[in-house]
Design a protein around this nucleic acid. Structure first.
Length: 931
DNA sequence: CAGGGATGTCATTTG
DNA sequence: AACAAATGACATCCC
């Protein structure tokens, strides 16, 4: 009955998902595709799990109640465990897929994220929620629906043929990410509760930790997690205390109930059982939340030591998200690397999206918890339940709140790691409080944020300020940093998820924790890198919005994050100024040798100012400033980075002295058409942010000149004879040549060359450049090489047509054009290569981190599985112990087994041979226990 | 002096 | 078919 309903619902949701994005199809295919990852994560156990499950489900499908034979403790335990395991599987695998999916979308989303529409995923989510919950639903309804979905899922699961098959359609429809995450969280939570209730000694944990299975990275991570734990101990205490109380209050009856509903949890539609339980016991929802079975049973067993474990679990839950966040986002951000290849590569692994989603998911989970608990719904057991909260959000009028919250949350995002305690509170806090929070998210949130943020904020300030040096950046930094997750928040909020307010916080915390965990533990460096990247990103944002300050620019450049455009903005002015200098150089080339040193100094002081003014070819070009000469070029270049100015100047001096020839050559190029120059500048900007960073390094005047010649004054300088004198071999610049040498090409070259090049190198290059130039001169080519190289084909042909050139000249011109083009092409090609390399490196680091995380997850899953087994065993024993046979004697667990009926009934049946691993059949009595 | 990095150039391929 | 762009390979220069 429900099955049908859910199935339909799920299908619809799936359809929606698919329709939203073709990419999502991949997600849908996930089950099949993921096998490798799945295996990796689950290991051999996965297969086992599957098999058993399938068998189990088959029984159910057949409609046959589990046969008494099957009702053995082992069977029960195994089923339960398997269910848990499976849930774990689902959690992880889908996450991966989801992340991948998100990665694809990440780039697109970034720009508009803040204010634009919700990301596709989010939108989809909203829609799904709408579908599920409908406009008029209230939180309670939502919860119920969730439960139903769960049921549906279970049904599907039962029929599942594949590992993944069990995943309910609803799950997929809602976005595997969400569901997965929620599931994962659920699982972790269970584990956590388990820890609390049945705590295993720290020793155990330690031992497990020390398994050594984890690799370097994992081990590295350990310290971090521990520190985190310690940090949060204070908070955890609260949590644990609360849990203890709850636990103690539970009785054997509760245990039985738990068993009953636990069993169904995996094997039957949860709806049947859950509602009953939820309604019956008020406090159960708590237990259910934390750990369906165990918590109530053995309160005494929970030692304070568990706090550690709890934290561990909590961390584990959070870690996954954090990793991703830190990892890739930066990579995408790096403008310089934006080559297609990079984009493609990065797209696959962008963690940002992941983090975002993760965060969202987490948030949802939290919210769900909070919202659900008050209601007393047991449906919480299922991860999916958490997904539902989103639906209500749409209906609720949280938009305004969400907006406000989003800001606060964003802030929080940045600093999330330290706040773990808060997160914990949210999760474990008093249900009522949680409920309230759901309603009054805003207030709660803000309050929340403020404290936690403070510290982080300071950190951020410090970091950010380094770059910006402006206190005002405080806020800005936060947002930019949050770029990843924060940016999403608005969307989410817009999605009108009532719970959202909470989400951000939780997700923030999660991220941070993860980050912190990871950062500390594993590749600390990576983490730092990420942080740095975020920082850079923030800087970039700021810069983009407000313009670059010299320090910022320098810093960005250093970091290599300055995107071409940005670079241009940044250095553009300088570059533009450079032309002046160059021109000057050209004009004064004759006087360079004498003036060299003094000029340099002068430029540093005065010309810098000019450069700052920014612009202008026209102004600076004034031929009147010949004295500026080549040194000016250097100064200009140096000006871009103040630090290098001195060195640059000195170099400039040397250069001027040593290389008049070069200067001459450069001067030859001086005569460029202004238009061309401008164009070049633009193009360079597009192409060459890359080089901007290196402007500091002295650029040979020749290059600079090439870059900048303005036609107007070229006339003056273009014909500078001194230049010719200096270089007798080369014919005095043909007017055309002289005037036109500074095309884009030259400018590019200048930048290119300027990029990390020593003066000597530059000289060499200048010579090379001049090679063609000289040839052109020797053949009296009437136009500049730049022109030759950069003119469009048509224009070029026209040019040739206009100037009657002999065969030799034509050949030379064509060669010059070809070589020049090729040179630029080669430069671009190399740049791309570098970019691709960098991107790959980023990817590799990200993948390494992810691998480490997955391994750790696996370890933890295994650990939790073991714990569950133990607890289950204990619980079973306890239950059996509480039962009496006809004669009032306690039942022997080895002789009797609990059998769970489809209707939620629990039956005690004697074990029989074959059916029960533990014991032989004894004639038994049936004790029927209803819940 | 060898090795590495940066750059230019040529030849070739690709779109 | 012409052209531009991309790229591998080689040469050169410099550190």
């Amino acid at each position: 009955m429900y099955l049908k309903k859910y199935l339909t619902e799920g299908l619809i949701q799936v359809a929606i998902l698919l329709s939203l994005s073709g990419t999502r199809v991949d997600v849908g295919l996930e089950p099949g595709l993921l096998s490798p990852l799945h295996e990796m994560m689950l290991g051999p156990s996965a297969g086992i799990t599957q098999t058993q499950f399938h068998n189990l489900w088959n029984h159910l499908e057949d409609g046959q109640p589990s046969h008494p034979k099957n009702v053995d403790l082992d069977g029960f335990t195994s089923r339960r465990l398997l269910g848990l395991v499976r849930s774990l599987d689902r959690l992880q695998v889908p996450n991966t897929e989801l992340e991948a999916w998100l990665v694809h979308r990440e780039p697109d989303m970034l720009p508009g994220e803040h204010h634009g529409q919700p990301a596709p995923l989010e939108r989809a989510h909203v829609r799904l929620e709408e579908d599920i919950a409908g406009p008029g639903l209230n939180p309670g309804d939502i919860l119920r629906i969730q439960g139903e979905n769960e049921t549906g899922r279970d049904v599907h699961t039962e029929g599942g043929e594949l590992d993944e098959s069990p995943r309910p359609l609803s799950e997929w429809s809602q976005g595997s990410a969400w569901s997965d995450r929620s599931q994962q969280e659920e699982t972790h939570r269970r584990v956590l509760s388990d820890h609390q209730m049945y705590s295993n000694s720290l020793d155990e944990e330690e031992g497990e930790m020390g398994d050594g299975a984890e690799e370097e990275e994992d081990q590295e991570e350990e310290p971090a997690s521990r520190s985190e734990r310690e940090r949060r101990d204070s908070v955890s205490d609260r949590e644990s205390a609360q849990n203890d109380e709850e636990q103690e209050s539970l009785s054997l009856q509760d245990c039985l109930r738990l068993l009953e509903h636990t069993f169904p949890l995996t094997h039957q539609p949860s709806e049947e059982i859950l509602p009953a339980i939820g309604g019956a016991v008020d406090h159960e929802y708590l237990s259910a939340e934390r750990g369906p079975l165990l918590s109530p049973l053995i309160p005494s067993e929970q030692p304070p030591l568990d706090l550690e474990l709890q934290w561990e679990d909590l961390l584990a839950i959070m870690e996954p998200h954090g990793l991703d966040v830190s990892t890739r986002f930066p990579s995408y951000q790096d403008g310089p690397v934006q080559t297609p290849l990079d984009a493609a590569i990065l797209s696959n692994y962008q963690s940002n999206s992941n983090s975002r989603n993760d965060n969202q998911m987490i948030y949802q989970d939290v919210h769900l918890m909070e919202a659900a608990l008050p209601l007393g719904t047991i449906s919480l057991h299922h991860p999916e339940t958490r997904l539902l909260p989103l639906a209500p959000s749409t209906e609720l009028d949280q938009h305004n709140m969400s907006l406000n919250l989003s800001e606060a949350l964003e802030n929080m995002d940045v600093n999330s790691s330290p706040r773990t305690p808060y997160h914990t509170n949210l999760i474990s806090g008093d249900p009522l409080d949680d409920l309230n929070m759901g309603v009054d998210v805003e207030n709660g949130y803000t309050a929340f944020d403020m404290n936690p943020l403070t510290q982080d904020a300071e950190d951020n300030l410090i970091t950010d300020n380094t770059g910006l040096g402006d206190p005002s950046n405080f806020d800005i930094n936060f947002y930019p940093n949050d770029f990843t997750s924060a940016s999403l928040i608005p969307q989410e909020l817009s999605g009108a998820n009532p719970n959202l307010p909470i989400l951000p916080l939780s997700h923030l915390l999660v991220d941070d924790e993860e980050e912190g965990d990871y950062g500390l533990a594993g590749p600390l460096g990576d983490l730092l890198e990420d942080a740095t990247i975020l920082e850079e990103m923030s800087l970039l944002d700021l810069a983009l919005e407000e313009g670059f300050s010299p320090e910022m620019a320098a810093r960005l450049e250093e970091e290599g994050y300055l995107v071409p455009e940005q670079a241009n903005r940044n250095t553009g002015p300088y570059d533009t100024v450079m032309p002046d200098n160059e021109e000057d150089n050209g004009g004064t080339s004759w006087s360079r040798m004498a003036q060299g040193g003094s000029r340099t100094l002068r430029h540093e002081s005065g010309e810098k100012a000019d450069s700052d003014s920014g612009l202008s070819l026209d102004c600076s070009f004034s031929p009147a400033s010949p004295c500026g000469s080549e040194s000016s070029c250097y100064s200009s270049s140096s000006s871009s980075s103040s630090s290098s100015s001195s060195s640059g100047s000195s170099e400039g001096g040397l250069y001027s002295e040593e290389n008049d020839q070069k200067d001459e050559e450069g001067e030859i190029n001086l005569d460029m058409e202004l238009e061309v120059t401008i164009k070049q500048e633009e193009e360079e900007g597009a192409v060459g942010g890359y080089y901007s960073s290196d402007v500091n390094k002295m650029v040979p005047s020749s290059y600079q000149e090439e870059k900048l010649n303005g036609l107007p004054w070229q006339e003056h300088i273009g014909h500078d004879h001194s230049y010719n004198q200096a270089w007798p071999s080369s014919p005095t610049s043909v007017t055309g040549k002289t005037s036109k040498k500074k095309s884009k090409y030259s400018s590019r070259q200048s930048r290119t060359k300027s990029y990390s090049r020593s003066s000597a190198e530059q000289f060499v290059e200048a010579e090379l450049w001049n090679r063609d130039d000289r040839r052109a001169q020797s053949l009296k080519i009437p136009f500049s090489n730049e022109l030759i190289i950069n003119l469009p084909v048509d224009d070029f042909n026209e040019l040739l047509a206009n100037h009657r050139l002999n065969e030799q000249q034509l050949n030379l011109v064509r060669d010059i054009r070809r070589r020049g083009k090729n040179k630029m092409a080669a430069q671009n090609c190399r740049r791309r290569k570098l970019g691709a390399l960098q991107g790959l490196e980023v990817d590799v680091s990200g993948l390494r981190r992810r691998r480490a995380w997955l391994r750790r997850e696996k370890q933890e899953a295994l650990k939790s599985l073991q714990e569950m087994e133990q607890r289950l065993e204990g619980l079973y024993q306890e239950v059996m112990f509480s039962l009496r046979d006809e004669e009032g004697r306690p039942l022997d667990a080895t002789d009797y087994a609990l059998q769970f009926g489809a209707n939620g009934s629990v039956t005690v049946t004697p074990r029989r041979q074959g059916t029960l691993p533990r014991g032989d059949s004894k004639g038994g009595k049936k004790h029927r226990d209803k819940k």
